[in-house]
Design a protein around this nucleic acid. Structure first.
Lengths: 170, 170
DNA sequence: CACACTCTTCACAGTTTTGTGAATTTATTT
DNA sequence: AAATAAATTCACAAAACTGTGAAGAGTGTG
């Protein structure tokens, strides 16, 4: 069936999902593309399909897709003989990818705090900033553990719903 | 000494720290106040001090402080006999607080995805969204572990620099 | 109770973001 | 090479966001 209503519901969900990502710091348009790519049934998408599905211009897609590619979340490839780009998510475990790509951010933060600590005079402020640097370092290391544990759990989850199953979620 | 230069350096650091928080989704002004409160040597701050230290208006402080209080990061109290509010960070372990306050967000996300899953027809899209919900649930649970482990590590870090020490950070 | 002072709210101006259509560039086919 | 089609860039209009000054509300003091 795949009625129009169903597609409308999907579009609504994509938008709300995108807002969650947006609140978490991702720019709106890339967030939309990412949400769309996850929630849609196709494995690859042309720019036209994205533009069409999200009801935005080709220009917007072009701009939104680059940061996602830079982040290593999306992959662009063009099959010789076809003259359109095909986008698809990198790897079969997006969230591991997303987790992994945080590292440069934490490196940047560490530099910032280390520089800052050099200029702060001793005192409660310096103490708190030092502790904050330790916190970010802690998170940075824990992220590896987190990624590993996620892969373990994911194996369990995907195993339990192997072939595409019946209807409703849950 | 506490030369003007030193305070200027602190202000610069505060601004950069605030930008990190801002990139991570916190609104700019609350981020500034939070960064300022962490990096300054005082344990409590009046609105006037915040406005002065950040070179912004009292109105801006008023607006910035509310979300921080709502998040449970800042505490406002007024000593009887004084007619100004005094702000200070809640608890002595800010980052545990920050971690803890994520829960409502994850609850919201879970509802959103569960609702969404009801409307998505079976297929790769539904499968990915289901997996994404599992991912968020995973993170949500892991956060408790993370908080506990942070408290452990923090005990070690603070112990090793007990009284405010010499100069440069690290 | 009237005063003094702080905090908050509000309308607004300046700035930044966002997304578009048109023009340009890049790539592919004939 | 010329022609065609897609992707990107660019200038711009619309919308959202920020922070301000001023007015108003709340609170403690004499």
């Amino acid at each position: 069936m795949s009625s129009q209503g169903a597609e409308l519901a999907r579009a609504r969900f994509v938008e709300q999902f995108a807002m969650v990502l947006s609140d978490a710091g991702m720019q709106r348009m890339p967030a939309r593309v990412f949400a769309f790519v996850l929630a849609s049934d196709a494995e690859t998408h042309t720019a036209a399909e994205l533009a069409d599905g999200l009801r935005v211009s080709a220009a917007a897609i072009s701009g939104a897709v680059r940061p996602l590619i830079d982040m290593g979340i999306l992959l662009k490839d063009r099959v010789p003989g076809d003259r359109v780009d095909h986008y698809r998510v990198y790897g079969d475990d997006v969230w591991s990818t997303v987790i992994g790509r945080q590292e440069p951010l934490y490196r940047h933060i560490d530099v910032l705090f280390t520089e800052g600590l050099k200029t702060l005079p001793p005192g409660p402020g310096q103490r708190r900033i030092h502790e904050t640097r330790e916190f970010y370092r802690f998170i940075s290391t824990e992220i590896d553990t987190l990624a590993r544990r996620w892969r373990e759990r994911r194996a369990g989850v995907t195993a339990s719903r192997e072939p595409a199953r019946a209807a409703s979620g849950e």
